[in-house]
Every structure is written in C-alpha cells, then in structure tokens.
C-alpha cells in the first residue's frame, strides 16, 4: 500500500469547518505539531548542554577582571601532574576499549544465540549497569585493598603470607591493572547492550543464508555480522571512549591521587583548589580529546548506505 505519512488529523483541533473554504487553505496544525512537541526538549538541552559548553570555553580563557587570557592553559600545562594525567588517561582509554569491546561482543553473541537461561544471563550481565563508577571503585577496593578479598584468597591458597600492596603508588602496573579491571567490570554491560540491540536488528535469515552457502562461524562473523553491525559498533565505541576519557570516580575511590587522570584533575581544581578557570581548562582538554576520538571513529568505522538500508 502507499506509504502512510502519519499526519492524519490535527492535534487538539476542534471542528472549525466551513464548507466554503477549501481544505488546503486551512492552517495545518499537524504540520507544526512535531516541532511544538520537540521544542521544550530542544530548548532545555540548549540551556543545559549547549550554553554551558560555550561557557566552559569562556571560563577556560577567562583571566582576572573579565579579560581574555591563555594563562589558565599555561598554568595547567606547567603543573607537574598535567602530562602524567594526559598520559594516564590515554593509556587507560587505549587499554580498556579493545578488551572491553571483545568481551562485550562475546557477551552479546552469547545472548543472541538464544541459549536457555538467556533472560537470567541478560539480567545478571546488566547488573553492573546499575552500579555507579564510585560504587564500582569501592567494590574493587574491597577486593584489592591490602587486607581485602584477593589477598585473603592468596593467603588461603598459601601464595602469600601478608598479601601484596596492589594499590601502592610504587607499583604503577598493578595500579593500572586494578583500575582497568574495575572499569571493564563496570562498563562492559553498556557496550554489550548497544551491540545486542544491533545484533537483534540483523534479520536471522542473513546468517542462515550464509550457513546454507557453507560459511564457517568465523566467516559468518567477519563477512555478515560485523559489517551489518557497524552502526552499533560505532555508537558503542564513541560512547565508551568519551566515557573513558572522563574516568574519575573509579580511580579516585580505588587509588586516590596515586594515578592522576584528567577528570580527577578537573574535579580537584574546582573542588579542592577552588579554581573554576583551570578546572574549565581541564574540561576543554577532555572535550578536545572526545571530539578527536569521535572524528577518528567516524572516519575509520564508516557507515555505508547499503548497510543502513539492509538493516531496516
């Protein structure tokens, strides 16, 4: 049948019919209705997202007495924790994304096989989604702290008498490892959900057709599933990377200032040192990193028109 455009009837329009006026000249409330319905949200997001973003840039370049200055950036970059925090944030991001992506993709594939207990697994696997970064940090603190559960297990197994100091500032590798595990534990669920949503949008017949033509599991994954999943993969990667650049509470809770990262720096500059300008400068660094990585993903994981068409 002809494609329907749902503009039938008018919102809240009372009958104002006058047979002498041709209908095409009547005001078409239904044409503006969607804009009216969307306007409050757009306005709100402008005030609370777009405007503060502009303000952030202004703050970062604001000197005393409303002057414009780049001094905030000078001061920020010459502070001894700045470059370590940039380095740590980037290393953190680069080590998390691939690990987490593989894990999340495996999880989504497992759920999508429709195995028995699927509902149970899906619920348990989304539990971390409910857990805040702060709580997640504390959860892993209970495991990795010196008299925590990990050392207790090592002790019970006879591997260590008094336990290791995983969270000591002297042991950079274990600091990192602990934070990466905690962050993966907390945030893989989100990536899995996005990928699972994408997987469920791929008609089963595609995979079945590939099977009929003798594709192996890996061929099918590589030739059918992954290309069709590109839009979801891209969204998942972008979201996940932006969140990783903002990492903050997990690290503060687990290792405090032993591992400086950009998010924690911005928090400290605002909260402990009461300097919103340098805090804003840090947030600009986060923004620039986010924009750069998003642009990177958009060019590398490119969307093809035919894929969009095929998944509808």
């Amino acid at each position: 049948m002809s494609s329907r455009v749902e503009t039938a009837g008018a919102w809240g329009e009372e009958v104002t019919s006058s047979p002498s006026v041709p209908s095409r000249r009547r005001p078409r409330v239904e044409a503006v209705a969607p804009y009216l319905l969307l306007a409050p949200s757009v306005f709100f997001l402008s005030v609370f997202v777009v405007w503060p973003a502009i303000q952030a840039i202004h703050l970062a370049f604001e000197g005393p007495n409303n002057t414009l200055t780049s001094y905030n950036f000078y001061q920020m970059t010459h502070e001894y924790t700045f470059w370590p925090s940039v380095k740590n944030t980037l290393i953190f991001m680069v080590s998390i994304i691939p690990l987490e992506f593989c894990l999340a993709f495996s999880m989504a594939l497992i759920i999508n096989t429709g195995l028995r207990g699927q509902q149970f697994f899906l619920y348990v696997w989304t539990i971390p989604l409910a857990i805040s970064d702060l709580a997640a940090g504390i959860v892993w603190l209970s495991i990795y702290t010196q008299n925590g559960y990990f050392n207790s297990i090592l002790h019970d197994l006879g591997l260590s008498q008094y336990g290791y100091q995983f969270l000591s500032y002297q042991n950079t590798f274990s600091l990192f490892a602990v934070c990466v595990v905690a962050e993966i534990w907390r945030s893989t669920s989100l990536v899995m959900l996005i990928l699972l949503g994408g997987l469920q949008g791929i008609p089963r017949e595609f995979g079945e057709a590939a099977d009929v033509f003798g594709a192996t599991f890996w061929q099918r994954l590589w030739r059918i599933t992954l290309p069709l999943l590109k839009p979801s993969i891209r969204v998942a990667l972008i979201l996940r990377t932006i969140f990783a650049i903002q990492v903050f509470a997990v690290i503060l809770a687990l290792v405090g200032s032993n591992l400086p990262v950009l998010g924690a720096q911005a928090y400290n500059w605002y909260h402990s040192y009461q300097n919103p300008n340098i805090a804003a400068a840090y947030s600009i660094v986060i923004l620039v990193l986010s924009v750069l990585t998003t642009a990177f993903y958009l060019t590398v994981v490119r969307n093809k028109a035919e894929i969009a068409g095929a998944t509808r």
Binding site: E13, V15, T16, S17, S18, P19, S23
Partner: peptide
C-alpha cells in the same frame, strides 16, 4: 459536507 470534520463527527 464532512470534508473538514474529524473522524468522530
């Protein structure tokens, strides 16, 4: 003439 009437009328 129902041209300008909503369905319910």
């Amino acid at each position: 003439d129902v041209t300008d009437l909503p369905p319910r009328k």
